[in-house]
Amino acid sequence: MRSEPLIRLASVAAATLMAVGLSAIVSLFVWSVAWRWTFPDSLPSAWSLTGWSRSAAGWSSALLDTVLLGILSTLISAVAAILWLEGEDRSGRRLPAAATALIYLPLMAPQIAFLYGLQVVSLQVGLDGLWASVLWGHVLFVFPYIMLALGDPWRALDPRYARAAAALGVSPMRTLILVKLPLLLRPLLAATAIGFSVSVALYLPTLFLGAGRISTLTTEAVTLSSGGDRRIVGVYAFLQALLPMLAYAAALGLPRRLFSNRRDLNGDAS
């Protein structure tokens, strides 16, 4: 098959990226626990958890907000994407291109100008600086990425599965839950991992809509990087990098555990 070399190349590239990401995370962790590290030593000569303990109050609060914003914005965006795509399936046609383009407006418009407009609106309606406003801003950026990642796999699903379920008297909602979502679990988990990673990395939406009152790992890491203690910067950067890695690991591992007895669903089909 002509596609086999491309698949192997993609696998090698993915493995390489994962190795680079893991090495970066390890390096950040080493920085977070390094007490004395002088040039040209390859490793610190003294180790300490002082960086973690001194900043515990700050990073624990930022970690909680980061995780909650990531989970909620991803969940809202994933449900909205599923409803959008399921609506297309039931109607038998896709929405006009102009309506679809609105989804990707946050990605296409210059971020500073787009966020400035959002901030002006939030100020006028009295929602500036609220946690809910930051969540709304995250959804605006997470939703397009989930749609991009999930749209093609969803539309490529063989419609005969749904027709067979309908022929057996299964309702559309049960077909969605019991047939479509299990078949699309891998791309759905991949899309949510991407969405969660996007939320973790969002800096300007959090800063603009939160009015500097909502702290996440990203906002704190950027602030500290301009002159903070490198050990504390390492703590925040390590946690910031670790969260997306855990999300991608879950997206890869969960289907294997859930469908361990179904080779074609757990990704081990040969």
Rank of each mutant, 00 (worst) to 15 (best):
A211L: 15
G51L: 10
G117Y: 05
S133V: 07
A19P: 03
A56E: 15
A162M: 08
L209P: 14
S197R: 08
T216A: 10
L140E: 01
R256N: 04
S171N: 09
Y116M: 14
A80H: 06
T223W: 11
L22G: 10
L209Q: 04
T100H: 11
A221G: 00
L22F: 14
L148G: 10
T100S: 14
A211P: 08
A166L: 05
A201W: 02
S260E: 03
L68T: 13
A249C: 07
G227V: 00
F114W: 08
A14T: 09
L107G: 02
P255G: 07
G21Y: 07
L246D: 04
W35A: 14
L189S: 02
P144F: 00
G210D: 11
G253R: 00
F143L: 14
S73I: 02
A237C: 07
L75K: 04
G227E: 15
S53Y: 13
L135T: 00
R90D: 12
Q124L: 06
A167N: 13
A250R: 06
Y116E: 00
G92H: 05
S61G: 06
R155Q: 05
A101K: 09
L181K: 06
G92V: 03
S225C: 03
L243Y: 08
I82W: 01
S197E: 01
P244W: 01
L123F: 08
N261G: 15
I112V: 09
A193S: 12
A201S: 14
T38H: 07
D268G: 00
L181Y: 11
V20E: 01
V134W: 08
S91K: 12
L157T: 04
L242T: 14
P110L: 02
W154Q: 03
A237I: 12
A14P: 06
T218N: 04
S197N: 05
L17C: 06
S215K: 03
G58H: 04
L148Y: 05
L64R: 12
F208S: 03
S11E: 13
F143Y: 15
L150G: 07
Q119Y: 13
P153K: 00
W35F: 07
R256P: 05
Y248G: 01
P5M: 12
S61Q: 09
